[in-house]
Design a protein around this nucleic acid. Structure first.
Length: 288
DNA sequence: TTCCAGGGTCCTA
DNA sequence: TAGGACCATGGA
C-alpha cells in the first residue's frame, strides 16, 4: 500500500496535497447518512468509529486517527487508493459527465461497512436524505452502543430481536417489516461479506433475495460497500438524466446503456451524473 | 392541500 | 414478464 504524502502524528493524520477530495461532496452526496458539518470540516460516523475530516488548502486532516486507524480503516473507507484523475480522464468527451465532474469535483465513492449500508439503503427507499439521516440517528441511539460523541451503528446481533413495530416507531414507516426480515436473514447466515468476491450479476442476484432490497438499493450496497464499482444505481434523479441520454427507457435498458457507455467504473460516473442532475434540478419525463 | 423523496412489494393481465 | 396501485412520513 502506498502511504506516500501521509504524515502520521499521535492522534491525527495529515494527507498532503490530496487531489479529488472535497468533504462536502463526499459526505453530502447521498451515499452515507451519518455526517454533520462541524466547523471547517465534517464529523462522520462509520460502524463504531467516529472521525473529523477537514480540508485545509490541498491537505486533508483526519482526527482522532492513529496510524493503525488510518491503515486499517480510513484509507480504504475514503477510497484513497483510487486515482480519480485517471477515472475522470476516461470520461473526457462526455458533455454531461464533464459538467457533473465540475459540479461534483472532489466526490469519492466510500467503502462502507456492508451491514450498515444494507440497513441504511433499505430505509432510503422512497425517502429523502433529511428523513433518512433522522431515522438512522434514532436507530443508532436506540440500538447501537454508545461511543465517544455518539453511537455506533447497531450490529446484526443488537438488532436480532427488534420487532417491526420498533422500527416503525423510529419513523421507518412501511419499511419496518423489511428491516425485521432482512436482519433475521443476516443473523441466519446470509453471507453479506462474501458478495464482495462474487461477480457483479451474481452478487446482485443474491442481494435481491433480501426483503426491501430491489435493483436500486442492491446497486447502492454493491457500489458503496462491496467494491463493485461497475454498479449503477438508478434512482429518480438518475432516471431523469439517463432519459436525456436515451429518451424514454426501461430500467434494464438504462443499465445496459450505462454499462456499455461508462464501463467498469460506471458507479463513479453515476455519482458525478447524480451531482449534475441535482445541481441542475433536472425535471423528469417521469419519475419512476 | 398536494407533491416529493437515492423504491419495493404485490397483484393482475 | 410488464405495468400499476399501494405503501408511511414529514418538509416544501
Amino acid at each position: 500500500m502506498d502511504y506516500s504524502g501521509v504524515e502520521f502524528f499521535a492522534d491525527y493524520v495529515i494527507i498532503k496535497d490530496v487531489r479529488h477530495f472535497l468533504p462536502a461532496h463526499i459526505f453530502e452526496c447521498g451515499q452515507m447518512f451519518r455526517f454533520s458539518p462541524m466547523g471547517t470540516g465534517y464529523e462522520i460516523f462509520a460502524g463504531d468509529k467516529r472521525l473529523f475530516v477537514e480540508k485545509a488548502g490541498e491537505d486533508v486532516k483526519l482526527f482522532p486517527c492513529t496510524r493503525e486507524d488510518f491503515k486499517g480503516v480510513w484509507h480504504s473507507y475514503l477510497d484513497l487508493g483510487r486515482d480519480y484523475a485517471a477515472v475522470c480522464e476516461g470520461y473526457r468527451g462526455d458533455e454531461k459527465l464533464k459538467l457533473g465532474i465540475e459540479h461534483g469535483a472532489g466526490v469519492r465513492i466510500l467503502n462502507q461497512q456492508p451491514f450498515e449500508t444494507l440497513i441504511s439503503f433499505i430505509i432510503s427507499a422512497n425517502n429523502n436524505i433529511g428523513r433518512i439521516k433522522g431515522i438512522i440517528a434514532r436507530l443508532c441511539q436506540k440500538h447501537g452502543s454508545p461511543i465517544e460523541g455518539g453511537y455506533a451503528f447497531p450490529t446484526p446481533q443488537q438488532l436480532r430481536d427488534v420487532p417491526a413495530d420498533s422500527y416503525a416507531a423510529l419513523g421507518c414507516g412501511y419499511r419496518a417489516p423489511y428491516l425485521e426480515k432482512t436482519v433475521r436473514a443476516i443473523n441466519g447466515g446470509f453471507p453479506l461479506d462474501v458478495l464482495r468476491n462474487l461477480t457483479y450479476p451474481d452478487a446482485k442476484r443474491e442481494l435481491l433475495k433480501l426483503a426491501g432490497v430491489g435493483p436500486k438499493v442492491a446497486d447502492c450496497i454493491l457500489l458503496f460497500s462491496l467494491g463493485h464499482s461497475c454498479a449503477f444505481p438508478v434512482d429518480v434523479w438518475m432516471g431523469r438524466i439517463m432519459r436525456e441520454y436515451m429518451g424514454e427507457a426501461t430500467l434494464p435498458a438504462i443499465q445496459r446503456y450505462a454499462a456499455e457507455r461508462f464501463g467498469e467504473n460506471a458507479g463513479i460516473a453515476q455519482q458525478y451524473l447524480f451531482f449534475y442532475a441535482r445541481e441542475n434540478k433536472i425535471k423528469g419525463l417521469s419519475s419512476t
